[in-house]
Design a binder for these strands. Structure first.
Lengths: 138, 138
DNA sequence: CCAGTAAGTCCAGGATCTGGACTCACCATA
DNA sequence: TATGGTGAGTCCAGATCCTGGACTTACTGG
């Protein structure tokens, strides 16, 4: 987790990933929407691309223009993005309409849930046992 | 989401929350385990407490000693923690044994999944439609 | 008396982020 | 031809933040 955060935990990195999730794939559009310094965003996009979370594809030669797409690894971060969005809506804006919700095919909202990989049942925060694999001290 | 990240996206913040999830509630133990500068950790714990993610409880008077517990708001960040852990195990350490897994009552591993709040069905990353509520430009 | 633990605080130096200006290559309009 | 706009960046100095280490206070145990 520490090393995941070295990539994804830097300022603006997850906001850039969110934009790609929402379909905003271009540099200037991201700058406009999230308000990051262009410099910083450029460096984040490089890091995310290098880590295999985004993929940079050229969509125009002369002048060279690029778009960013999610890889499978990037798509696996979906629960992070969604949880952070909903957490803010719930606890930082209570009562207000959320500025953006993700809507399922059936018309209802999405939610990230912790479930058991095998039996598929939801697991509450207290019910899991941590199992250390190397030099636990525990 | 931007405002959520202002709290939770600072360096060491999520690692501190993870420690509390794992049951390591005390300052020095967190310092030992995550290796954060004591200074920084102290300030993160203040911020997380102020944001209502952690709760600081005194467990000894003379000398005053404190433990940190998760609030309901903190527990709602479970999918974030779990996803970041598993993402690192999958993509940064492929093949290796993960250093720590969370085990369900039934003995299997946990996983964060995006599901529809109403119908409960899992939703893949592409299947959701973003719905903007204020001045979308879209 | 000495060592250890717990929960911090203080500080100077180093790393990182910030906003703004700038570049380069085009396209559109007048 | 000149003016303005878009897109994807780069460059820079100043501000902000993080870092490791030393220090503090209040105990407990040998």
């Amino acid at each position: 987790m520490a090393r995941t955060l070295e990539i994804v935990g830097e300022k603006w990195a997850l906001l850039a990933v969110r934009e790609v999730f929402l379909g905003n794939r271009r540099f200037d559009e991201m700058v406009r929407r999230i308000g990051a310094p262009r410099d910083t965003l450029a460096s984040r996009l490089r890091a995310l691309t290098g880590a295999g979370i985004l993929e940079r594809r050229q969509y125009s030669e002369h002048p060279k223009r690029f778009e960013y797409f999610l890889t499978d690894a990037g798509r696996d971060l979906y629960p992070v993005i969604l949880t952070l969005m909903r957490w803010g809506d719930t606890y930082l804006n209570p009562g207000d309409q959320p500025p953006l919700v993700l809507v399922h095919e059936c018309g209802e909202h999405l939610l990230a849930q912790v479930v058991c990989e095998a039996c598929g049942k939801p697991a509450a925060a207290g019910t899991a046992r941590p199992l250390y694999r190397e030099s636990p001290g525990n």
